[in-house]
């Protein structure tokens, strides 16, 4: 069919306009049905957890639940801190200084999401080749700073957003 250069007609405009409106309307309709599966307000309301840390002795740790996941709070000894900081960054799979994983002046407190970055299992404390954590699922070894040293996990265990409300209380989230 010989194609001539056609002028834009009224009908072309109507087609484009109505398809555009239809597409926007459809998108606006679909969005609520997708968003309803996101965490709802009652879940978001539980998004922070306050923890009393006054009873934790040096070298000990506790595990608390935050957003349905375990969070390790470890009060590290001076030896452990020194050991974590002695490691050269070249040895690390996911290089990160220990100083960057704790709050300034609160070096002894390691607050970390207790979830293996491989496939989401909870690692065991004081186990493994690096005296930190060891994940029993697929054999990932973490050091006392929670950094991955050996095994299939790709990155260090995650540090959640947290703050010290006072000397004895940590607010996670």
């Amino acid at each position: 069919m010989p194609e001539k250069k056609e002028k834009t007609t009224r009908r072309d405009f109507l087609y484009t306009a109505s398809f555009t409106v239809g597409a926007v309307g459809l998108g606006a309709t679909i969005w609520p049905f997708i968003d309803q599966m996101n965490p709802d307000k009652s879940v978001q309301a539980l998004a922070t957890t306050e923890v009393d840390i006054s009873n934790i002795e040096p070298g000990k740790s506790i595990t608390v639940l935050w957003r349905g996941k375990p969070v390790f709070l470890k009060r590290r000894t001076q030896d452990e801190i020194a050991e974590a900081r002695a490691v050269s960054l070249e040895e690390l799979k996911d290089p990160q200084k220990d100083e960057d994983r704790v709050k300034d002046g609160k070096d002894e407190w390691l607050v970390m999401l207790g979830v293996c970055t491989h496939l989401g299992c909870v690692p065991l404390a004081d186990k493994g080749d690096y005296k930190g954590w060891f994940c029993p699922c697929h054999g990932s070894h973490y050091d006392v700073s929670g950094r991955i040293r050996k095994g299939p996990a790709p990155v260090n265990m995650e540090i959640p957003k947290y703050e010290f409300v006072d000397n004895n209380t940590i607010k996670i989230g």
């Binding site: 969005w31 609520p32 309803q36 996101n38 307000k41």
Partner: peptide, 26 residues
């Protein structure tokens, strides 16, 4: 989002209305 239990059904519907994203609309 709904819970089919005599003790929870009513409040789960209110949960849909108040908490669930766009739950009121749906």
């Amino acid at each position: 989002h709904y819970v089919a239990h005599a003790d929870l059904a009513f409040s789960s519907v209110e949960h849909i209305m108040r908490d669930v994203n766009y739950g009121w609309l749906i």
